[in-house]
Write a protein that binds this DNA or RNA. Structure first.
Lengths: 142, 142
DNA sequence: GTTGCTGCAAAGTGTTTGCACCCTG
DNA sequence: CAGGGTGCAAACACTTTGCAGCAAC
């Protein structure tokens, strides 16, 4: 494995006096191969298929590394656990979450973004990040 | 105390074979008197000033009642604890959250809402609720 | 007087941390 | 071979639940 993502992680690691380990490679590759919006436990389960004695704490620690290096983005859909989504070359988007089947549709609407900026400016607020989640029923579930 | 909110809660309670208690009144009135976006612990602290031996569990249970009866709305800003905001006669709004001082500015932009509906329709999705949180720096903190 | 409610403490979540040993650089 | 990384278990923070006594209807 020697993807761009691998490179990003290794760059981040060497820039911070950290070390590349077998476990970190495994977690990264599992993360990249996973569907989007995995939780730490999801990832732990996947990773264990490859390497059965990897610890949950290591998964958490690596996810935090991935987040710091910009490869992953932390999400919180309010169900009490964090999800992580891919971020490499992955532009910003928002979510429609089906409360029936759990499906997540991603979308991006430039005008919504534009009006957000406008409201912020009007309030003297500087946006560093935002998230828009819509909950409801997808086409299949109504 | 005999506000409209009190009425809403009592209606809900009697419709569900539940009972009105001193503690529930206390929690409701503390909730109504509180600033918006209180956490359960916040409310517990406030309530204890009036009635020192009220349990945290009771606060949680009452907040769940308030949420079910529509008086409160559960919020999750991703900081690991739920917040509750007033909902009686309180129209929908979104949030700008200052990551420096914690201030929360509420806003509502009809066009943003409109475009949300549009995106949803285009995807065959029916929105039941949504939330838009923007994180950044408020005017005082930059 | 039922039946639901309370306070307390214990159990449950999901996540983080301390530590002795291990491995990368 | 030094210093960070790992697995494990314990600690955490927030929330929920079980239970015996209590109070509302």
């Amino acid at each position: 494995m020697s993807s761009k993502e691998q490179q990003v992680l290794e760059d981040f690691i060497s820039q911070n006096n950290l070390k590349i380990t077998r476990q970190r490679r495994t977690v990264l590759s599992a993360f990249l191969g996973s569907e989007e919006h995995v939780s730490a436990e999801d990832l732990h389960r996947i990773v264990r298929e490859k390497e059965s004695n990897i610890g949950l704490a290591t998964v958490y620690r690596t996810l935090s590394l991935l987040t710091q290096s910009g490869l992953a983005v932390e999400l919180d859909f309010g169900d009490g656990q964090k999800r992580y989504e891919h971020n490499y070359m992955h532009s910003h988007h928002d979510h429609m979450i089906c409360t029936e089947c759990g499906k997540i549709i991603e979308f991006n609407h430039p005008l919504i973004e534009k009006f957000q900026e406008e409201v912020a400016r009007r309030n003297g607020f500087t946006i560093t990040s935002h998230k828009l989640d819509m909950f409801g029923l997808c086409a299949d579930c109504k």
